[in-house]
């Protein structure tokens, strides 16, 4: 009975197995990236970048149809271009990074929708916007797993300057020139994970597996290392629960995964050990010193 409910769907159906593997790999890379986005107050940047990759994916689609490499490369190029252009504009004009990013992603998004609707049907647009986690082929799985691997290794390598750039950018500037390149590498990781995510969850929801587990993890710990681990676990659990819910109640899988992540987040808000609502309700005596 419990087996039927919790395990059988994945044991019996190949497409469910693939969806689970894809979600787990995605959670491993996206969660930690989301933690850094959150700590650097760039939570909405992830959202903006997700919109920005749409025209790239659309161009890939127009040229080669629903082809994995074409749409992946297109998405990467569009995302990196928008990140780079907005970085340039914020460095050389009075516009701050949030303003310049907003302008470029809006342009990019409008262009993307025009491109998709010029050739494709509405079904194609839905496919790009909301992904197909239940139809991941081998190539897509390898792509997502590869991106997760690269993300985790790169984050480990640039961990120290990345933390320093968050806490005390002035100090980092005074001891090293690594700040700007590290920031660009980090944005490239964001784009890569969104592109990986959009095959499974679509361009709009891919960012959900980044920000929701990260925000949930923040409610449980003060320690960045623990936060990174919790975010990946939270994403993986959301993937599993979302797929189960989608299977048993015939709901669309992508949104179900993100809603599960949202459920974890709301639960963390309520019960979290770092200022959750319930904790605030319980009176605790202050210490002697």
């Amino acid at each position: 009975m419990i087996y039927d409910f919790l395990i059988a769907p994945f044991a019996e159906f190949d497409f469910m197995k693939r969806a689970l593997v894809g979600s787990l790999a995605l959670a491993l890379g996206s969660g930690p990236i989301g933690v850094f986005l959150m700590l650097r107050r760039l939570s909405l940047t992830g959202d903006a970048m997700a919109h920005a990759i749409l025209p790239g994916a659309a161009v890939g689609y127009l040229i080669a149809g629903l082809s994995l490499p074409a749409m992946t490369i297109g998405g990467m190029v569009a995302g990196v271009t928008v990140a780079f252009l907005s970085g340039l504009v914020s460095r050389f004009t009075a516009l701050k990074e949030d303003a310049s990013l907003a302008t470029f992603y809006l342009l990019s998004l409008a262009l993307g929708v025009v491109l998709v609707s010029a050739r494709g049907s509405n079904v194609d647009l839905l496919h790009v916007l909301f992904g197909t986690v239940l139809a991941l082929d081998d190539a897509a799985l390898f792509l997502i797993a590869g991106i997760a691997t690269v993300s985790v290794l790169t984050l480990a390598a640039i961990y120290r300057p990345l933390v320093l750039e968050c806490v005390d950018p002035g100090f980092l500037r005074s001891v090293s020139n690594a700040g700007a390149p590290v920031h660009m590498v980090f944005l490239a990781l964001v784009v890569m994970n969104l592109v990986g995510g959009f095959h499974a969850l679509g361009t709009l929801l891919a960012v959900g597996l980044m920000m929701l587990p990260a925000a949930a993890a923040r409610m449980w710990t003060q320690d960045v290392t623990v936060m990174l681990i919790l975010s990946a676990i939270g994403g993986a659990v959301s993937g599993y629960i979302g797929l189960l819910v989608s299977y048993h109640w015939s709901l669309p899988a992508g949104p179900a995964i993100i809603l599960s992540a949202g459920g974890l987040y709301l639960a963390s808000l309520a019960f979290g050990a770092q200022g959750g609502f319930v904790q605030r309700l319980v009176p605790v005596r202050h210490l002697e010193a």
């Binding site: 700590l39 933390v163 968050c166 806490v167 005390d168 950018p169 002035g170 100090f171 710990t221 003060q222 320690d223 960045v224 936060m227």
Partner: peptide, 8 residues
């Protein structure tokens, strides 16, 4: 110093 004091 532009230190983000909210950073854990």
């Amino acid at each position: 110093a532009d230190i983000d004091r909210t950073f854990p």
